[in-house]
């Protein structure tokens, strides 16, 4: 039983560390909570038997590091869009191509229908 909880705590804490370094860092909270719960159970079970193995303390350290990284990232990482030059260039290119294409198309729109639409230009 003790072994099972120790292994579960270790696996969960490793997942917490992996998630925390990925952009999905918020999700690290789920395995971190799991690691803490399993770790505490494993800790008490081993304490009952008299000896607490270092590996359990190691899972606690991993979990705390994961939580620290997650907290740091959630406070200091800005959610912003950068690096949009390429897509803006594509937008302009597509617009130019489309204008050419639309000129060649046979579009039938009754202009009187459009009269009541205000243009904001």
């Amino acid at each position: 039983m003790k072994k099972l909880f120790t292994i579960l705590a270790l696996i969960a804490s490793i997942f917490a560390i992996i998630f925390s370094v990925l952009p999905l860092s918020n999700l690290a909270i789920i395995p971190a909570i799991g690691a803490l719960v399993f770790g505490i159970i494993a800790f008490y079970l081993s304490k009952k038997e008299g000896s607490v193995k270092k590996i359990i303390q190691f899972t606690f350290i991993l979990t705390f590091i994961a939580l620290a990284i997650t907290t740091y990232k959630s406070i200091f990482t800005k959610t912003e869009v950068t690096n949009t030059d390429a897509i803006e260039a594509i937008e302009d290119k597509l617009e130019a191509e489309s204008m050419q294409e639309l000129e060649d198309l046979d579009i039938e729109i009754d202009e009187s229908e459009l009269e009541d639409i205000p243009f904001d230009e």
């Binding site: 952009p23 869009v81 937008e91 204008m99 000129e103 202009e111 904001d120």
Partner: peptide, 25 residues
Amino acid sequence: AVKTSKTTLLRLKCKATTYSKWDNF
């Protein structure tokens, strides 16, 4: 609004861009 020599059309544009933290992944 997109004006061609014949008529005026409506241009609908949708754009999706990932946030900078995702760009490397």
